[in-house]
Design a protein around this nucleic acid. Sequence first.
DNA 1: CGGCGTCGTGGTAGCGCTAACAAAACATGG
DNA 2: CCATGTTTTGTTAGCGCTACCACGACGCCG
Lengths: 360, 360
Amino acid sequence: MTITPTAKAGRAAPRKRARRATQRVTMTDVAAAAGVSASTVSLYFRRPEAVSPHLAEKVRAVIDELGYVPNLVAGSLAAAQSRTVAVILPSILNSFYAETYNTLQSLFQGSRYQTMLGVTEFSPEVEEDLIRAFLAWSPAAMVLTGFDHTERARAMLRGAGVPVVEMWDMPATPDEAVDLSVGFSHFEVGRRQTAHLYDQGSRKVAYIGAAVHQDLRVRSRTDGYEDEVRRRGLHPPIALTAPDAASTPVGTWLIDEVLAAHPDIDGVVCSNDYLALGAMFEARRRDLRIPEDLAVVGFGDLGFSRVSLPPLTTVRPPQREIGRLAAMQILARLGGARIPPSHFALECELVVRDSTRPTL
Amino acid sequence: MTITPTAKAGRAAPRKRARRATQRVTMTDVAAAAGVSASTVSLYFRRPEAVSPHLAEKVRAVIDELGYVPNLVAGSLAAAQSRTVAVILPSILNSFYAETYNTLQSLFQGSRYQTMLGVTEFSPEVEEDLIRAFLAWSPAAMVLTGFDHTERARAMLRGAGVPVVEMWDMPATPDEAVDLSVGFSHFEVGRRQTAHLYDQGSRKVAYIGAAVHQDLRVRSRTDGYEDEVRRRGLHPPIALTAPDAASTPVGTWLIDEVLAAHPDIDGVVCSNDYLALGAMFEARRRDLRIPEDLAVVGFGDLGFSRVSLPPLTTVRPPQREIGRLAAMQILARLGGARIPPSHFALECELVVRDSTRPTL
DNA sequence: CGGCGTCGTGGTAGCGCTAACAAAACATGG
DNA sequence: CCATGTTTTGTTAGCGCTACCACGACGCCG
């Protein structure tokens, strides 16, 4: 005879549903301890000045005593909006994007908004996923880099009903942007870098770029270079680009290739200061004099550019200013201002140093 | 006779509370359209394999058709936990921390967790605020850098009841760590950098460091340097440090100062490759030969170190491996594994290049 | 002094989802 | 074919907060 295993004794009357344990201090606890209603506590957080000083003091004391931390998840659900701003960057290894993020974070933090950062590594598909994920958190605003999104991403952004800022580029046409944008013309930057080399005496100027296929902004700078070369008409454009991310080793490699094919170039425009640094290392290794034999101009004005050997002429993008303007526009909108979709065009500064300035 | 302004007509019977407009597609909409219950849709998202293929197909179709995006805020509230991992870094301008973040993001994304990034700029107070803000989102886990937190921050972390990983350092005693940790000994790194210079023939080795007061890890490396110098007993330690963030210009400035006070040093340990780069630029500007007159060792193995002039000897920290291990431990815990608080000690690799290798 | 607007406070219905439970549908074995 | 498991699906009560509304207490004015 088999023994019935685990003969469960007659199950008790349908016991009360187990209350899900959450030992966390809630707003209701605070209200009870302070002898006020939950709405008063809520009001105290959202508009402290609307609560009488007497009660406010009492609430404050209880909050401190109990160590109450408001549950933002619940708050965001009830308000159908969170105090979160989603920021999407192509890369944070690129220090200019990183600096823009720093500016954004500190400005938003000052207004009690939390930033969430996502990194796409230049893939529009990854970007689409990130946008979807962030939107599921009902952010108060979205900040993106560039205008290169998938159709679906664009649709989600349009339908989100929150301020959207696209930064670090300029829309070709007004409706290329989803909403607001802050940036500058990379085409102009490329042209200006190139013109500067000719103006300093170069007669044959090449271009080296990295991540061109992923980063449309690099592409625009390349276009600016080609345009200026054609305008001068001294030689056909010589542009060599690598699919890899911009780095110093890639710079040495690219300049090596360019010099092999065109030993007579006397100037080179680089899509990035890291590339320029690599190019300069390689040039010196070949005993080329900079700028006499090869003038070099970069982009980014990274930390080392000021003190490299020789100091590097470069274009300084308004990294901080981009972040500041983006944050300001968003905060104004969130504050109720009716700002129409618009673009804020900034300028880059050409910082001339010895890598293009012949010593007399 | 005054006309009553805006004589509100006898207010209608307490009208039904205005339903807050939310045109967003909800799970209930999906359920209705698919002819199933909401919990089936919910189940479909959490454990698709538990739903019969027939219904799953139907649900999937409706989701696509309606473009439904689950509201994670509501989900997190109900589940009392979100699929979010908070990551706090001291800086993202420092590319090794940035690389660790990249690794974390991609690993967590693969397991459908979203990362939230906060940057402290090396301030424990900012860190405390960030921790408080993140905790209000009930993250599934927290990842921090180092062990230097305020007492309140530590208390919050202990009470959070979620996995906590502190990375990039080694706890002095087991209970210095809140929970899990992944890192390596910076003291050992400092010692090893110094020993290497002596072993390569240097007789008088100085140390330059940046951000020492903010970054305890730099402090540990400095201690390692001093320990090794004392052990060799050839000269007293010569350490010069700057409060600024590590950068190439700071490197040129520091080596300048050191050489002014101690013209006879023949080796320098740098807390960071950027500093080392600056030091090398300045040394070459003074026509010092590297490594014959001055050997240089850095830390970080940044992109340029491999191709600089000369290539830089440096210590390569396991940036990716730190991120990978941290993510693995957390995912294991979240998957139900019972891992006790523990430390994972990693090794750094000394990469010897020409800046310390005399050419024969 | 009564009516009315304003201010401060409290009551309460959701926000959209998950988890616990219950019920239904299906499978299995004697 | 029934008794007994095992899936699969449905029902419902919250999660902790905010927004809307109601209400009482004042201050003000004619």
